[in-house]
Design a protein around this nucleic acid. Sequence first.
DNA 1: TACAATACCTTGTATCGCAAGGTACTGAAA
DNA 2: TTTCAGTACCTTGCGATACAAGGTATTGTA
Lengths: 107, 107
Amino acid sequence: MNTDNTKSQMRKGMLEYCIMLLLHRQPCYANDIIQRLHEAEMIVMEGTLYPLLSRLKRDGLLAYEWRESTQGPPRKYYTLTADGQEALSQLDASWEEISRTVQFLKQ
Amino acid sequence: MNTDNTKSQMRKGMLEYCIMLLLHRQPCYANDIIQRLHEAEMIVMEGTLYPLLSRLKRDGLLAYEWRESTQGPPRKYYTLTADGQEALSQLDASWEEISRTVQFLKQ
DNA sequence: TACAATACCTTGTATCGCAAGGTACTGAAA
DNA sequence: TTTCAGTACCTTGCGATACAAGGTATTGTA
């Protein structure tokens, strides 16, 4: 059976939220994000992350600045914009709502 | 902006889990499910639900039986199979993991 | 007999995660 | 100088899925 499939489905919708939660605390570039989410037991692939970051940038929720690296090419460090912070607040509310829903259905 | 889109994305992955949580407590037919999830603040469309139920049935997680209705055509009442119960346990674990991830990222 | 209500299902579209592959920059080794 | 490994960013093609819209079938009533 494909519980893995459903499980991955469950994580899908959370990705955007988790990335914004992460960037709320500190600017990160792509590999930072992948690594830190991995530490939080949330697996993300490059092919998933880059388009997602581009989309959030295009929607005005993220901004980035180039920073030199001591080893390798420069990196795009992403941060939340003011709109991004507001969106994050709304997603916080959505998360609470979903938690309440699950709680309600579990009781 | 489309926080609504992201919000809907967040709910998407949870649908299967919520439906199985619901059926764990009592057999339901489609309109039951729509109504009860609505009470739990989880909106589902018919066009989403029917294919999903068919898929879970095909995967052996759900079974159904026809029951007469006092007003209208007979209904398909769905229940969790043994495999479905096991899958639900795994999804419970996935939910806990996601909760921990969000908690971890929020702190 | 016609119609409204109820219930089940299908088709087409858009979105999105993911695997795979590609481009570009940097620094060190040959 | 040239080559190569490492790092970083990005794109393409595919499959899965939610949703809107539309369709079929059964029931009871006017």
